[in-house]
């Protein structure tokens, strides 16, 4: 199935980019994330436990960030498996700066669902995937806005993933 959308940020593009590449932020945004460990360069392994409606699941997910083109685009690969089935996806994330500050994020991805969820839950999958995606991005917006507020109050602390010369 296709997952596409647009998310608007008040925070500027660089802040959003930083958030998108910050494992702590990603962990906070992933719905039901119980743990996330680095497993290589731009590779993370997370354990997610969530329920949307009747479907509850515990998933082990591998996230891979590739094709980084800061601060504009990257490709996110997701490989997850759990009791209800497995999930495999790839999506591109594009960040565009808005005039007057702010940024717009466009995501365009393909999600393959397999296993029990695919064969029983066809009519729920679309709704649930969209819901989880929405949750992820609304938390990302929160995270980005709070980073902005923080950075306005406190001195800039160099962050490993930001582009300092």
């Amino acid at each position: 199935m296709k997952l596409q959308g647009e998310v608007a940020f008040e925070a500027n593009r660089e802040t959003v980019w930083d958030a998108l590449n910050n494992p702590e932020v990603i962990a906070k945004c992933l719905p039901g994330c119980e743990s996330m460990e680095p497993a290589g360069e731009d590779v993370f392994e997370a354990v997610l436990k969530f329920g949307v409606g009747p479907i509850t699941g515990q998933y082990r997910v591998t996230l891979k960030i590739t094709d980084k083109n800061p601060p504009q685009t990257y490709v996110l690969q997701v490989d997850g498996s759990g009791k209800p089935g497995f999930v495999k996806g790839q999506g591109s994330i594009k960040l565009q700066a808005q005039d007057g500050g702010g940024a717009v994020l466009r995501y365009d991805g393909d999600l393959q669902i397999g296993g029990l969820a695919a064969r029983i839950g066809q009519r729920m999958i679309g709704t649930i995937s969209k819901q989880l995606t929405k949750q992820f991005f609304s938390r990302l917006v929160e995270a980005a806005e709070s980073t902005t507020e923080d950075s306005q109050d406190s001195p800039q602390i160099p962050h490993p993933s930001s582009n300092f010369p």
Partner: peptide
């Protein structure tokens, strides 16, 4: 926890193991 009322939606989901309260 999940609440069991009529069970007409929940129990099939539990039998499929899609829901595991």
């Amino acid at each position: 926890a999940k609440v069991l009322a009529g069970g007409q939606s929940l129990v099939p989901m539990m039998n499929f193991r899609l829901a595991q309260p």
